[in-house]
Write a protein that binds this DNA or RNA. Structure first.
Lengths: 231, 231
DNA sequence: CGAGCGCTTGAGCGTCCTCAAGGTTCGTGG
DNA sequence: CCACGAACCTTGAGGACGCTCAAGCGCTCG
């Protein structure tokens, strides 16, 4: 289900701010848009990287799997961000899979058009380089958190991320929709659903958070920060 | 202690194979060389990245630290490889520290000269991009190993790396020098020195390896592969 | 209204960490 | 050349954190 996307506004923001107008329009002209249902894969680990993906709407998780049917959510991708960074250039393979969490609209640019753009504006590759480095830095943070922090600290950290990205104030505190299900949350912080539940339960009992369905209320965000950062 | 390095041969290999001769010579002309004793730092986490580093001789570890004086060896850098990838371009901060393991010779290229090179040959940035992606892929592998594998599997994997990179055949099996001390080995596979010792002891008792001082003999490398890959 | 999936909680146990102590190697200076 | 201290290596005992397996409940959607 491919459509031309000439009216997509998301590209005018975020990463692409520093690009020239001609580049942006070239991107809009040659790229293809498709939508993905929740749990649908955009690409799989070890797929050949035929091009570049940009998320327009929705939420996508990047996951890496191991043999023993364990997996880890390596990153969450928000609208305006790239998927699969630039493995497309190597003609290489994706090191992880991309799977829609919510209904998502994704823009795809084939490698050949991408190469054209790079020819026209060499500064594009520098932008991508800084993006790739950003990704690397994020992954290193995930890595060190995994060895140095316990589950409660990691969970607190993840919840704080959600709070910062999409929370609304109400009279009882910050409120936002949990973007991930319990099992996904577990994969995100590198633990099991059961352990995630137990720690969530502890936070609820201590009146740090409140959860109803997919909505989470941050009753004591200061306490949550203490839990995330201290020993 | 800076010296001009016009005779360094290492740059003619490895990463730089695909660069033009003029670029290579520009690199040799403008870069500075210094040597580092074991345990000496080349740069620290959160340092401003003033330029690019290339390892000519020796061995360097990239480490990331957490509050609770835990740390993790994020990568080992061998001669011909880059340190700190290209955080230099952002004018950003290093996300990890670089510390010499063995006596090491390191080439430094200031950002301003690096920018000149990028101007002259835009394909350089693509090369760096693929290098950065390679790093990211490696880090993702470390990450998934950490959540999906136990200590024995990770240790077996690390030992196999050493065997592949620098082993000599003898009549009793493959032999090589362990590049890391016990505590470093522990930081490399994300555990404690004590646990590392216990698993090493188990492997010795089972006649999979033999260790004397810093020399390790691989008595049954096939068994080691089984331990690394299976559940 | 029923089936399936997601959520929640419990019991038991295994892996790995912590703390502690003793032995060995290495470097340095007398 | 030897002696000493420091860093490193090695092993033990004990315990905590988080995983596994299992079961019941609730929501949601066909």
């Amino acid at each position: 289900m491919y459509l031309k996307c000439t009216s997509c506004r998301i590209l005018h923001h975020c990463l692409w701010d520093s690009l020239s107008r001609t580049l942006l329009e070239g991107l809009l002209e040659h790229s293809l848009v498709s939508t993905y249902e929740p749990k649908e894969f955009i690409f799989h680990e070890r797929d050949e990287a035929y091009g570049l993906y940009v998320l327009c709407q929705g939420l996508v998780k990047l996951i890496k799997s191991a043999q023993n049917n364990k997996q880890m959510i390596v990153a969450l991708v928000h609208p305006g961000q790239l998927l699969g960074v630039t493995f497309a250039l190597n003609g290489g393979l994706f090191p992880m899979s991309a799977q829609a969490v919510d209904l998502s609209t994704v823009l795809f640019l084939h490698r050949k058009h991408f190469d054209d753009l790079l020819q026209r504006d060499p500064s594009l590759s520098l932008l991508l380089l800084s993006y790739s480095n950003e990704q690397l830095g994020q992954t290193l943070n995930t890595l060190i958190d995994l060895v140095a922090l316990n589950v409660e600290q990691r969970l607190a950290g993840a919840l704080l991320q959600f709070a910062e990205s999409a929370a609304n104030h109400t009279n009882s505190g910050l409120v936002c929709r949990l973007p991930l299900r319990r099992a996904e949350l577990a994969d995100y912080i590198g633990t099991t659903p059961e352990t995630t539940m137990r720690v969530l339960g502890k936070l609820k009992r201590e009146n740090v958070i409140k959860i109803e369905r997919r909505m989470i209320t941050f009753l004591d965000i200061q306490r949550l920060r203490e839990l995330a950062h201290s020993a």
